[in-house]
């Protein structure tokens, strides 16, 4: 059986007395796209830096395609393209030279003509083709981020580790990055951190949520979204006050939250007895002729719901 692209076992990291990572366990299968989520300071960048050999773990180990990043760091890194959170390049090199420099740091020599084509291809993929000869020091934050992506891709690595790849990008750039990640699906494993949950939900197969230095959730994104919410969504228009009071008075309704959308209201109704709610709620609302029910269904769980639930539970624990 092929080794996972990334395995982390019982990983710990402390800076002095400050324990940042507590016994992290994580596996990213080959070919998957794994979103790495967590609040600021949760330890996402620290985990990635340990995998890249920039920090020494206090305990535990990390393996890239079965190679220990501490014992065989160079061998492990030969298979990884890495985008750090704060991308910095030698300011005196232009974009093309940056990519050429990085390509020459990887084993396996390419003919000059092939390398030139590859550099053009990567610059084009990240939207920097027209800035190929611009000095890295003269790039804007978003452009530097794009160049960071290109340099992570230049050796066509089997594993990409990206620390907030869309952080400084405009909406168009963000879409480009998501498209790029989507295009890698199946043949390159991607492990990336982000705070943009919408992006994760769009492109990831697996999600790992880190909270308080611990892996609070890990699994396919569908599994996280599948869990029942115990709630219902109602979109209603007209004279809704009486209908709301009537519904809140039902013994099987535990809470009702309201959001106003123009001349309509969007209710999230949490219930104690789902069967009764399924049977009685809609007839009850339709019986009130002063309002119109526009939408009625079980509340759908979003990644944001799942994330907040996991993080809050972790803080509570």
């Amino acid at each position: 059986m092929a080794a996972p692209a990334l395995e982390i076992h019982d990983l710990n990291k402390s800076f002095g007395r400050n324990e940042v990572l507590h016994s992290i366990d994580l596996t990213v299968p080959q070919g998957s796209i794994c979103g790495f989520l967590g609040p600021n300071g949760a330890g996402k960048s620290t985990t990635m830096k340990i995998v890249m050999g920039l920090l020494r773990p206090s305990g535990g180990r990390a393996l890239v395609f079965g190679r220990d990043v501490h014992r065989d760091g160079v061998g492990a890194r030969a298979q990884v393209g890495y985008l750090p959170q704060h991308t910095r390049f030698h300011p005196y090199r232009n974009c093309r030279e940056v990519l050429s420099y990085v390509a020459h740091l990887y084993p396996g020599r390419r003919p000059a003509s092939e390398l030139r084509e590859l550099i053009d291809e990567k610059l084009d993929a990240v939207g920097l083709a027209d800035k190929a000869n611009r000095r890295a020091g003269a790039l804007s934050g978003g452009e530097a981020q794009r160049l960071g992506l290109a340099q992570a891709l230049i050796a066509e690595p089997a594993l990409l580790i990206l620390d907030e790849p869309a952080a400084s990008l405009d909406p168009h750039g963000r879409q480009q990055v998501l498209g790029l990640l989507d295009g890698l699906r199946g043949h390159t494993t991607v492990f990336y951190s982000t705070h943009i949950l919408e992006d994760v939900q769009r492109v990831s197969d697996i999600v790992a949520i880190l909270a308080n230095g611990r892996v609070a959730a890990l699994g396919p994104i569908e599994d996280l979204l599948e869990a029942p919410t115990g709630g219902w969504t109602v979109r209603i228009a007209g004279q809704v006050a009486a209908a709301r009071e009537h519904l809140e008075a039902q013994p099987w309704v535990s809470s009702l939250t309201t959001r106003v959308r123009g001349d309509q209201e969007l209710w999230t109704v949490d219930v104690t007895d789902d069967g009764t709610a399924a049977e009685l709620m809609l007839p009850l609302l339709l019986s009130d002729e002063s309002c119109d029910v526009m939408e009625f269904h079980r509340a759908e769980r979003t990644l944001e719901d799942a994330y907040l639930e996991v993080v809050e539970a972790s803080h509570g624990g």
């Binding site: 395609f65 160079v74 740091l105 990887y106 396996g108 690595p157 390159t188």
Partner: peptide, 24 residues
Amino acid sequence: MAAENRDRAGARPSRLLPGLTGLL
């Protein structure tokens, strides 16, 4: 592409001062 990735990953870095040629 997947096969190419694996091949490239299989290229071993030099044992003595790996990366020196590119850095220099």
